[in-house]
Simulated assay, not measured.
Amino acid sequence: MKRTQTAEEREREAKKLRLLEELEDTWLPYLTPKDDEFYQQVLKRRVRMILTLKAEILILGMLVLRSHGT
């Protein structure tokens, strides 16, 4: 026997359908390890994460120095 959907599930399903209607024939890039661009994209993402992490460490260090009055 099939259970009835809750209001939240119906709303989520409606949102999915609206999004699919908006996208229609739009190509969504989905890369797998077999694709040539996959590792380039992974590398770009990793570099971005490293730069963000370094920036956060630098800001934290500057805040520590500022709090010690140097």
Rank of each mutant, 00 (worst) to 15 (best):
T6N: 07
L17D: 05
F38L: 02
D35A: 01
A55V: 12
E22A: 14
E9G: 06
R48I: 12
I57A: 04
T6K: 08
R12S: 08
Y39L: 04
E8S: 12
E8N: 09
G69D: 00
V47K: 15
E37K: 06
P29D: 02
T4Y: 02
K15M: 09
G61V: 08
A7D: 07
G61R: 00
V42S: 07
T52G: 14
E24Y: 09
R46V: 15
I57F: 03
L28Q: 07
R18E: 11
R48A: 14
L31F: 02
I57M: 06
A7H: 03
M49N: 12
L60I: 13
L65H: 04
Q5G: 06
A7I: 12
Q40E: 06
L20E: 15
E21V: 10
R3I: 10
K2T: 15
M62H: 07
G69W: 05
R66A: 02
E24V: 11
L60Y: 11
G69E: 05
T26M: 11
I59M: 10
Y30N: 01
P33T: 04
I57V: 13
L19F: 11
E37H: 03
L51H: 10
I59F: 05
L31G: 00
E56W: 09
E21A: 15
P33R: 05
L28M: 08
I50A: 13
D36W: 02
R45V: 14
R45Y: 10
E21D: 13
D36I: 01
E21P: 07
E11K: 01
R12V: 02
V64M: 05
L19T: 13
T70E: 04
R66F: 08
R66L: 12
L20N: 13
R3A: 06
R45C: 11
K2F: 12
D36N: 03
K2L: 15
T70Q: 03
R3M: 07
L20K: 14
K34Q: 05
L31V: 02
L28W: 00
A14I: 11
R18M: 04
K34V: 01
K15I: 06
M62S: 12
M62E: 14
R3G: 03
A14T: 09
P29G: 00
L51A: 09
L23V: 14
D36K: 03
Q41C: 03
Q40V: 01
T4M: 09
K2W: 08
L43Q: 09
E11M: 02
Q5M: 12
V64I: 15
I50T: 13
R48Y: 12
H68R: 09
R3C: 05
D25N: 14
E11S: 00
E9Y: 05
L43T: 10
T70V: 08
L43M: 10
E8R: 10
T6L: 06
Y30F: 00
E13M: 13
R45T: 15
D35S: 02
E24D: 15
R48M: 13
W27V: 13
T6F: 01
P29T: 02
E37Y: 01
V64R: 04
V64K: 08
R18H: 07
R45Q: 15
T6V: 06
K15E: 12
E37V: 06
L51W: 05
E21T: 13
T70C: 04
E13S: 08
L53N: 10
E21W: 08
R10N: 07
F38S: 01
W27L: 06
Y30I: 06
L51T: 12
L51R: 13
L23I: 14
K16E: 08
T6Y: 03
L23W: 09
E37F: 03
S67G: 09
E9R: 07
